[in-house]
Amino acid sequence: MMSYLEEHYELIHKTPRLFALHVTREQLLDTLHQITTHTSFDTLSQLTCTDWIEEERFELGYMLTNALRSHNLMLKCSIARDKVTMPSLALLFAQAEVMERELHEMFGIGFEGNETLYDFALEGWCDIPPMRREFDTLAYVNAHYDFREGREDNLDVKEEIKKRKAAAKSAKETPSGA
């Protein structure tokens, strides 16, 4: 099983049971097809996406598992962050449908051939997809929610220490009774 992968791909050994290899968007379907027919990595167990905003790319990870569930292989595919669609794997793996649906909602990635890209966990969401790095949770919360009243007496501890030191200093310089 491993020899085929070693022979044909640049395999990265992450741990003894976890491997990774990089593919381009164009190679993905072909590579998946080759791997599922020639090796026992024939189950898609997770579809991940990481937003590397500073490098202007998304890194998709297709996590494959073998039939014995003993080894994992991750196919990594970097795509541009905007206006890029991926081919859907729904025909290859039934479970890919819902995973793609989730990534479509959370990152705004389109998947060609997936008919189910409607609302997943969010309902009527018209802001930018929330898992993208440019979506600022704090700004969203500040705009949409109120904070509990009665917490305005919070003090900045560093400021208080400075104040106290200054007060102690001035008390020393002007001794009482002078």
Binding site: R17, D42, T43, L44, S45, T65, A67, L68, R69, S70, H71, N72, F93, A94, Q95
Partner: peptide, 22 residues
């Protein structure tokens, strides 16, 4: 192939358990 796990697999005859397999 469909990525099931746990009792769904073990209930239909596949002895898959990550505690043993991985």
């Amino acid at each position: 192939r469909r990525g099931f796990s746990g009792q769904v697999l073990r209930g239909c005859g596949f002895a898959r358990d990550l505690r043993r397999d991985n």
